[in-house]
Amino acid sequence: MMFMTRRLLALAGVLVVSSFLVFAAMYAAPGSPENFLVQGRTVSPDVLAAIREQYSLDDPFFVRFWNWLTNVLQGDFGQSLANRQEVGDLLANRLPTTLMLVLLAAIVIVVLGVGLGIGAGVRDGIVDKVVLLGSNLGFAVPTFFAALLLMSIFSVGLGWFPVFGSGTGLLDRIWHLTLPALALALPSAAVVARITRTAIREERDSEHSVMASARGVPAMLVLRRHVIRNSMLPVSTIVGVHIAGLIAGSFVVEYAFTLDGLGTLLVGAVQRKDFAVVQAIAIILVAAFGIINLLVDVLYAAIDPRVGTRRSK
């Protein structure tokens, strides 16, 4: 419990400071904040007043930050300058696609990465060689390149999957997001596969696994209970790190497949310098990143009795 409380406090601290950074970033830009926010767009005095209001530009700096932060905490991210919509609404529309994409990619990492890694770890010979080679090349394939290749082969070439868009309804969405999820997960799955393979091999030669066999425990059980189970301890942290990493990777893949997720929204907002949107997405992503990393640590503490529960020695 102490562990949890400490981690939560640390996360809260990091989030406050990083939201300050995100907020303060626009003051680093050359020119006045107004000019920066408007970016040469011609705007009516009304809009200008709204902007001054949204960022409370008439108040001292820290009051501005305080107002902005309290608004953000209440889910009010202000208005997009590009199309005068509530940023909160924009995000709400985009969130499902991104969530779904990251979720599917996470599944791919676990199934493909961990699965192939286990396969290569427990089996010597050709399976092992192929997986090893694949993972050595796979981690070097940029997600956007994988996206393009998958798209041209499976969508344009074979026509098995739709080329663009996110689909409607659950199954249709999954169908639309399969290739993007594969592209997004590929490099991570490659790394995870290799690390899993190494972990399995180390665990296979570990004394407790060898001794379990020496005690007459059936081979399948030794594999399951001692080799695979124990190797999942280090693997789970790696998988967690990579799932957290999907957050940033998702921008690129969404953009490549023109999906209507947070990533494309962010890319568009950066290109158009629509700063309210950039700030909102940045904060949400930093929070999501932190929360996933925290969950990974909690999960790890839960599956490894040696962490955090030391009673006696």
Binding site: S206, E207, H208, S209, M211, A212, R225, H226, R229, N230, L233, I303, D304, P305, R306
Partner: peptide, 8 residues
């Protein structure tokens, strides 16, 4: 080393 660290 003989006992699996994660099993009671």
């Amino acid at each position: 080393a003989v006992l699996n660290p994660v099993l009671p």
